[in-house]
Design a protein around this nucleic acid. Structure first.
Lengths: 240, 240
DNA sequence: CGCAAATTTGACATCCCTCAAAATTGGTGG
DNA sequence: CCACCAATTTTGAGGGATGTCAAATTTGCG
């Protein structure tokens, strides 16, 4: 996929506190880094994982953002998840030994590759690494099950309100503004993820603007009334 | 929750081949068993995990079946998953340190409890245990993401066809008939899980019967035309 | 500046939910 | 063992939310 690769330094990484080596001391981090492969930045819309290819590496976003996408036999594509800095991508391969989805960058991004076999060996020796891996894995499972609740039970406005609040929270977690941000994905990708038609996304966003909940101009979003959005989401769980 | 508990013997367990100690040799299994707590059989409709309580144990179904269920602040309940013998329940707690859902038996069941802390220590020493844990976790993530695809994109008949085929496969995996089985859950629970109204479930099942795809009499299901069901599912991925 | 892609808006169709009621099932006590 | 009652399931009628199709508008990029 890339012609060159190089070792990276986790200690100067912006997401160090949330990533796999979060709990490792300096000597352990050095061991960890030895099995991590860094790559030159990937351009926007680059596929870096291919559905149905063997699972070998755990991939972690160092910067940027990406989506995972399922392609059905009839060619239909559907977005399954969005991922930001510090998140692992492709973990469903742990069960099937095969990536189940394509992973595609939404903007220029850096992706670290960690071959699973040596990672597992290192986990056996460094307990904090094992803990952190399980923590991140548990979070992914939690997010997926929360998404199931949404997709199975929430109306279009509820889904979109939840989605915006979730984005807001993720931005906050990265130390960025939680009320003013740019969508990295198209309406079509949003709709695909939320199980809604592009037109529905557009209509609801317009309605939210008319109701004074948000400002939206193309991909620029301003949350004007977070409490109101929460009411619109009315999906009372810890995620929104 | 239970007044008594006792150690169990994994070697005579029906699901040994799929459970956590699947890959362990006899001496390792003995160590594993020391941290597992067995319990007397739970009756039907017993809650054995409570939403928002601290995550301490990994729970594994030794026999029977259960559902996990989310309760919203307004009291609304929604089924998030169904689990059978050999499957772990409550793993989303790995991320949040809190069970996110109630777990309730659908029929008389046996549940093993494994405290996570010593389990993690043992994983560090027994590599096959680590592998199996990650395999099962990966499978859960895979299932959840597959459910997202269904809930976000499939029609009522597609969801129900998928669901039946999935059940069929699970029964086959346990060495039972894949074409004749009993539903352990009510129409309401099915609908809640699939994001459909009870009435829709009923109507679609009746239609499937009229089309010769299945026989259904209350909770007794016979798959009469698996190929036809697959066509109805038309959700062309490895799960159906 | 110009064109292709993305987004918005409008009109209409459809699937599924809601409400209502009948039929069936399963459990309980006589 | 049977009768009864509550809970579950089925069936029917009608409405509403969201998808589909079509076209106008805006955006982004060369």
């Amino acid at each position: 996929m890339q012609s060159t690769s190089f070792t990276i330094d986790c200690r100067d990484c912006a997401v160090r506190g949330n990533c796999l080596p979060a709990q490792l001391d300096d000597t352990a981090i050095l061991r960890f880094q030895q099995i991590v492969t860094g790559h030159p930045a990937l351009a926007k819309h680059r596929k870096f994982l291919a559905q149905d290819t063997p699972f070998i590496h755990v991939h972690v976003l160092r910067s940027g953002q990406c989506k995972t996408e399922h392609q059905a036999q009839d060619g239909t594509r559907k977005v399954v998840g969005f991922y930001g800095p510090g998140q692992m991508v492709g973990l469903e391969g742990l069960g099937t030994h095969t990536y189940r989805f394509d992973a595609v960058t939404l903007c220029d991004s850096e992706v670290c590759e960690i071959p699973y076999a040596p990672l597992a060996s290192l986990m056996a020796e460094e307990a904090p690494l094992l803990q952190q891996f399980h923590l991140l894995l548990g979070n992914q499972l939690d997010r997926a099950q929360w998404a199931m609740l949404m997709l199975g039970g929430a109306s279009a406005p509820q889904r979109i309100a939840c989605f915006l609040l979730d984005l807001s929270q993720q931005h906050a977690a990265l130390g960025e503004s939680s009320e003013l941000f740019n969508l990295r994905m198209s309406r079509e990708e949003m709709g695909s993820y939320l199980g809604l038609a592009v037109e529905s996304i557009s209509r609801v966003l317009t309605r939210f603007r008319a109701e004074g909940l948000i400002n939206v101009s193309n991909r620029k979003i301003v949350l004007r009334d977070v409490a109101g959005l929460r009411r619109a989401a009315e999906f009372n769980n810890a995620h929104c």
